[in-house]
């Protein structure tokens, strides 16, 4: 299984991927640039502290991390299926779960590195100290979104469009309008987790929050494994 993990990692960050990789790095560092711009207008230290949290919630957590997760995982198995190279992986004596988990793990490693780069660069600009909390919330965010989008990429053809639709319409719009809808949003639990870790009062108990986020990861990966196991590799030959 390690061979598949190593191969997936190469598929993601090999030299042939320099275009996509450059875009991910730009997207990762973009918040630091925006943060520096925001700092130019900040009045005092209190405002900076507040800006740091607002920035993390509304830029990093709401947009950068989920979009990165979507772009990274949708370039793994979905591309293999579309160009039919997946047969070289599928027709091997490997556990079917491994065919999903190894690429997922390689995607998670890349995403965690990008997240660390993002949070450290933003934290450097703000010179504030919520870094450990943000790293913990960001890591869980990436795992949850990456698992969710891995399942999505195996269910629908245009996973990036569907994923962006989910992020912008559901999490960005409907979940803000409707309270019941917000409970079906990953972001709701991440914000709840962040508040709990910062020692603030949170709407949902910490145990429930963690349970839901871990559940999203497990259920999504389970669905992805089942989907790959039952998939029909039709291709375009007929």
């Amino acid at each position: 299984m390690f061979a598949l993990f190593r191969f997936s990692l190469r598929q993601l960050i090999g030299r042939h991927r320099w275009g996509a990789l450059s875009f991910w790095i730009v997207l990762t560092l973009l918040p630091a640039g925006l943060a520096a711009l925001g700092m130019a207008f900040a009045q005092d230290g209190a405002q900076r502290s507040e800006m740091n949290l607002v920035f993390f919630n509304n830029v990093t957590l709401a947009l950068v991390l989920p979009v990165l997760a979507l772009l990274v995982v949708s370039s793994l198995l979905r591309e293999e299926i579309q160009n039919q190279t997946v047969v070289y992986l599928y027709l091997k004596p490997l556990a079917r779960a491994g065919l999903v988990l190894a690429p997922f793990a390689s995607g998670a490693v890349v995403l965690l590195l990008l997240m660390a780069l993002n949070l450290i660069s933003v934290s450097f600009v703000f010179q504030e100290s919520h870094l450990m909390t943000f790293l913990a919330v960001g890591a869980l965010a990436l795992l949850a979104y990456a698992a969710f989008f891995t399942a999505l990429s195996l269910v629908v053809r245009r996973a990036v469009l569907w994923g962006l639709g989910y992020l912008l319409l559901w999490e960005g719009f409907l979940a803000n309008l409707s309270r019941p809808a917000s409970f079906l949003s990953i972001r709701k639990y991440l914000l709840n987790l962040e508040q709990a870790l910062l020692g603030n009062s949170s709407e949902i108990p910490l145990g429930t929050t963690l349970g839901v986020l871990v559940g999203v990861v497990m259920v999504s990966l389970g669905a992805a494994i089942w989907r790959l196991w039952s998939m029909e590799f039709v291709g375009d030959a007929e």
Partner: peptide, 12 residues
């Protein structure tokens, strides 16, 4: 052993 019809391979 399966040799598929598709010509797509890992070009990199």
């Amino acid at each position: 052993g399966f040799c598929p019809e598709t010509e797509n391979l890992y070009d990199f």
